[in-house]
Design a protein around this nucleic acid. Structure first.
Lengths: 199, 199, 199, 199
DNA sequence: AATGAATGAGCGTTCATTCAT
DNA sequence: AATGAATGAACGCTCATTCAT
């Protein structure tokens, strides 16, 4: 009763605890979306797993969709290229490093794709998300190309798509992406997709 | 004179028309599973899209699950390696040819994976399906390796996984897989993953 | 095409084989109604168990209801009192004999009662059926009463109801009604409900 | 902070209103099961008759089955022998009193039996329910037998079965069991099944 | 006359969302 | 602000009945 403004159900929370609840919901949702997928995750699940009641879920989010979209947006903003600095180590090692990042992304993307099938707005976001990741990869490929060594007869877009595809799926298969030997092999494969081998 | 509970659905159809209906249902199901995914495709959708009523769907299939499993099984049986004969053309061309096959597989696999989240039996089938495709690829890679030219420092399993991943996703994105330029590029990329470039 | 008369779906069959089919359907229906009950017996079950297709079922009967009603009617007409002749043996033996008759009745009655819950017309028939059985019993009790020995302070209607109730349930429990010791005991109990014991 | 799949229905209700709803549902279910039987009573019926929506039904009960089983269990626990104390009045009066109890039981039992045809678990409960009632009757008969006066040549099990049968059916026919004259007659009949008449 | 394929209303159940407290 | 009870559209599936062959 602190205000006369009814302020709609999804007002930005102004209180500390409220923010915590919101974060807890986001975190639970991310985890559940990743593991069970969008459609198999219920609003009640998310709320329960965050330790609140369903009603509270709808205090912070308009609907189930919104949580996912927000998670993705958040991810896109956060996850901009943490471009490594200093002289690159050898390419394989750089790629290996890349592969161990971003474990969460794949699952989320998959969830958005699921949602996109039902909701055109999500389809746009999914496309946007993919595009961003794509652009990040493309950027790096272009940098690498500028330094020479990249196959000159390749369309960098297609190349970025290929790398993205592999990285994406890798992150879905959690057993794979935790096996360093496998990861190293993949790094080598990807390196060869990109770089002309040394004489 | 049959006795207890003989009247389940799923009797083998005995009339010509029935076979047509069954095929229509399978075709509709394949298409819908591919485009909307398993969970978003309802039995009613499949029936409607095949031009029949829900009831007819259940005359031919025990449940929604069964259609998917049957589609996959069918695919697995059909899609055995159409191993090309004669002296291979150059690798890129061979791969390009591979990429234009099997359009349906990817979407189906994705549907099974969705189902697998809910039904352990489907999980087995999904695993089996992936394994078969994997083995087919592995076989070819081993053949190629025997002929030399394959990178000697690669784990062929990981290599097969990588190729599979790319081919799979390619088939999901129908616009991509119909663009011959793109496909040629991909063929080249894949070729470089596999083969040591000529002097 | 033997006649111009379309003659409706449920014409009395004029051909020998047709009659056999009809009888087979009735027999199957009786058995299934008895064992599974009305609601759990499907038209397809009945047809299959009679060795014909569903379509044929509906050639001979307007609907599922009709079969049951016909069975009951048939039973009521057939099962008129096979009044034993000659001097009654002792009461207990007479009753014992009664108990081993009419095994089918109970189950059918139960089926009609189930149907009666959904269809008022069946309710009437059920009532009628019970009334007939009741009357048969009452008749015999009155005969017995005329010969003396029946408790004079009993309302014969209530007495008939009691006997009917026990006989009815006995026939439902097939294990019971095949145990001669049990049956003899019951005969004794019923005898004592009815008759003043000898000095 | 609960984890996987905590959100099933059937949580114990935490609000006062919830308990009322649950009770209303149980009451409606009992009445409908009794009058229409298990199979003809739909979950929607029960909910509507309790003044709530279907969804609410499933908040409190896992499925339709559970309601019935709960009703029976509840009944069995409640209905333990209200063994009369003090010197029995004459047998007839005691029995008359017995007949006016437990009106609900019969219909419920019938519903369980219907369910038992489809669900073996219910079959067990039905058997258990009948056994309990049977045992209660048997107990009293044994007590009576200990006091003499019971026919010595009767199997008490069969006797209990007979009484149970009559009482059961009596309760199904609500018009009958509210007619005191009829009830007195029945009491007399039952008394004679059990007791050797006074010299 | 017979077959069995096709129909569709209806049931049991789930879950996103709203509402009373 | 939070809770959790209530809602009802929608899904998977069954089966009595009709219809084309």
């Amino acid at each position: 009763m602190t205000s006369d403004r009814p302020s709609g159900p999804v007002a930005e929370p102004r209180q500390e605890r409220a923010l915590q609840t919101r974060q807890a919901l986001l975190a639970s949702a991310r985890e559940l979306f990743r593991t069970r997928g969008y459609n198999l995750t219920t609003a009640k699940d998310i709320a329960a797993s965050a330790g609140v009641a369903v009603g509270s879920f709808y205090r912070y989010f308009i609907d189930k969709k919104q949580v996912l979209l927000e998670l993705v947006q958040q991810h896109l903003e956060t996850a901009l290229p943490p471009q490594p600095e200093g002289p690159l180590p050898d390419p394989e090692t750089a790629i290996d490093r890349l592969l161990s990042q971003d474990q969460a992304e794949g699952g989320l993307l998959r969830a958005v794709i699921a949602l996109a099938q039902q909701d055109p707005a999500a389809a746009d976001l999914a496309a946007e998300a993919r595009r961003q990741v794509h652009l990040r990869l493309l950027q790096r490929l272009q940098d690498a190309a500028a330094l020479g060594r990249v196959w000159p007869d390749l369309d960098l877009d297609t190349l970025a798509w290929s790398v993205h595809t592999i990285v994406d799926r890798l992150h879905e298969e959690s057993d794979l992406c935790h096996d360093p030997v496998r990861r190293r092999q993949l790094a080598r494969i990807i390196a060869r997709m990109i770089f002309v081998p040394e004489a």
